[in-house]
Design a protein around this nucleic acid. Structure first.
Lengths: 347, 347
DNA sequence: GTACATTAGGAAATCGGATTCCTTGTTTCC
DNA sequence: GGAAACAAGGAATCCGATTTCCTAATGTAC
């Protein structure tokens, strides 16, 4: 903590024997100066450890070179990677990131928005806890919504493409010969549950298949994943036997879970019921949340929404908007299929 | 996105029919002004939606009212709560948080430090991925290290008090009548593994007890937690029988795991071996990471390091330092024992 | 050798508030 | 009624870098 007095441009100017304006030009490569002069100034600046005051620079540039990262929730499992991806991309663009977490409280959010406006951030990236569309914020600078899109179609939003995610899963399962596929969702009222269901049904239909049984909804816990397996296979613990199917075979040969957490619980329950994953029943998750997808037994085939890339993309769009080329509308970012043992055996 | 022209103090002054300096005094409650004048100015400011430019304010105040949150890793499971807790406390103090994640790369870290210095942040909170002491950063403003302390004892650091955490666990287990306690650590070279082991041994000794078997080290995975159970109980799957202990009783009546992840794996393995948790063997975790401690079967008795409070405390210390009252040395924050079914049955 | 074009670098204005220092009125007191 | 004290608010300065505007020096052309 060397608390030496801060070095100002005038100090550098004095040491180099030039005017402050010359120092500015020399260090920023502007103006017309002799190379020897630039070198002399650089030398003096280095010697003093001069770091130009970004505050002053901002004031005259009328730009803060700062972007606000407004997270509706407490930067949880989903918004965190988005925030990190964005921060990363911003740093590359010489921008700094102001973190503002609203913890799901509109008052706090409003407070943060005001603070960001007061700081004259060049733009704002808004993220949320879920993919539910949200009300836009009203600020005098560009905004990009990531993960949770804005309800206003004129705003720029970047969201994971669940439809593609489900299509990848269905392609994979069908290619493996699975035909009797069931679906287990999370909370019924959330888009993540319902969109994935609807897309799954559509993708199956496109291949002449039908979902086995009704969609099951509960919450996002492993426990629900376990119980859902019972609901799919029938209550009696041993009875994995299908009605009319070949003797001893379960009623389904694959279960698509709407999250890794659900899938992990599902795998546990299947094993407890004496069924082999994936030999008897293939299982897929969603999110590729490593502590779930890798710790699951077996590890989960799942969909990686690439949330960091999502954040990165949001940052790119925001930077473009700041530079005068705003985007509008919802951009869907294709996810990546991650194949592991829950569908491929020891593959 | 109402991109109206930004309102300046002169605009407010013009509308209110006063001088800019008067507006400043009126809105900040300084100077001596008639109440009617203040009201008139407030009215004008409201009407125009005037938000003073924090950049300009910072420049003249010679303070940025901004704090840097420098995270060595990518704001992972441990540093994230610390960062959030800090951000939260800072907002309360009217400070904004600049997020800077170094991703374990010294070059990136250096870059971020320079950026924070350039922005003239009022102070910096440094967090890390582990509790290993780290090299301090050299900057001309106050710094507080959170979670990962500085190796320099003159710096201010806040860390979780693992010793107290272990003591709470031992007290709890011993009070429940457990006497044959084994320990399973994570990576052998990490302080979190060894400190917890050493404290556990010391606490047991203080009660005339000894650790059963050697400390076992591996990694931090559930898989290692499962295998460690085999190591503790002996290789043969069914054989939970102690050498010399009462017939059929396991060699231990409690296993202290160094993390929830390990403990969760341990519970799974114990159950698979036909042992009841906690009836046959009590299990404790560490961290209170909800997706592990609550999803475990049974849910885990564990230690909550209160990382958010840690971040909050770091923010408090930093604010004090900024206001001229720097602290020094390592402050240990006592954790909280969280009792669940892995030691208390249906309790 | 004089007129004109360039170039190097300094002086001053600017960004938008905060603050200090004055200048007016208005009271108060003797 | 006049001097002193005080209140109210405006003018000017400052924060630290950037940028525009100028001036002086150097170079080029005829």
């Amino acid at each position: 903590m060397e608390r030496g007095p801060v070095v100002r441009i005038t100090d550098v100017a004095a040491l180099a024997g030039v005017a402050p304006s010359t120092v500015s030009k020399a260090l920023n490569g502007t103006g017309s100066l002799r190379e020897s002069t630039r070198a002399k100034v650089r030398e003096a600046a280095d010697r003093l450890g001069f770091v130009p005051d970004a505050t002053a620079r901002s004031l005259s540039a009328r730009r803060s070179f700062t972007v606000g990262l407004l997270s509706t929730d407490s930067a949880g499992r989903f918004s965190l990677p988005v925030v990190l991806g964005a921060e990363n991309a911003l740093v590359g663009g010489e921008l700094s990131a102001l973190l503002a977490t609203a913890r799901h409280d509109p008052v706090r959010e409003q407070h943060h928005v005001r603070a960001l406006v007061a700081r004259r951030v060049d733009g704002i990236i808004v993220t949320g806890r879920t993919t539910e569309p949200r009300e836009p914020i009203r600020v005098p600078m560009p905004v990009v919504y990531a993960f949770a899109p804005s309800v206003d179609p004129d705003d720029a939003s970047v969201v994971p493409d669940d439809a593609t995610g489900m299509r990848l899963l269905v392609e994979h399962l069908v290619a493996l010969g699975r035909r009797r596929i069931a679906y287990v969702g999370g909370r019924a009222e959330q888009a993540a549950s319902t969109v994935r269901h609807d897309t799954l049904v559509a993708e199956l239909a496109a291949r002449g298949l039908e979902l086995v049984g009704p969609a099951l909804y509960g919450d996002w816990s492993e426990q629900w994943g376990r119980r859902a397996v019972d609901a799919v296979l029938g209550r009696d613990p041993g009875g994995a036997v299908a009605d009319g199917a070949a003797g001893g075979a379960p009623a389904v040969d694959a279960i698509v879970f709407a999250s890794d957490q659900l899938a992990r619980g599902g795998c546990d329950r299947l094993r407890e019921r004496g069924l082999r994953v994936p030999d008897d029943v293939a299982v897929t998750g969603y999110d590729d949340w490593d502590v779930m997808s890798l710790a699951s037994r077996p590890p989960l085939t799942t969909v990686d929404m690439q949330l960091e890339r999502l954040g990165q993309r949001a940052a790119e769009l925001l930077i473009a908007a700041i530079e005068g080329e705003p985007a509008r509308g919802v951009e869907r970012l294709a996810p990546r299929l991650v194949v592991r043992a829950s569908t491929l055996g020891d593959g």
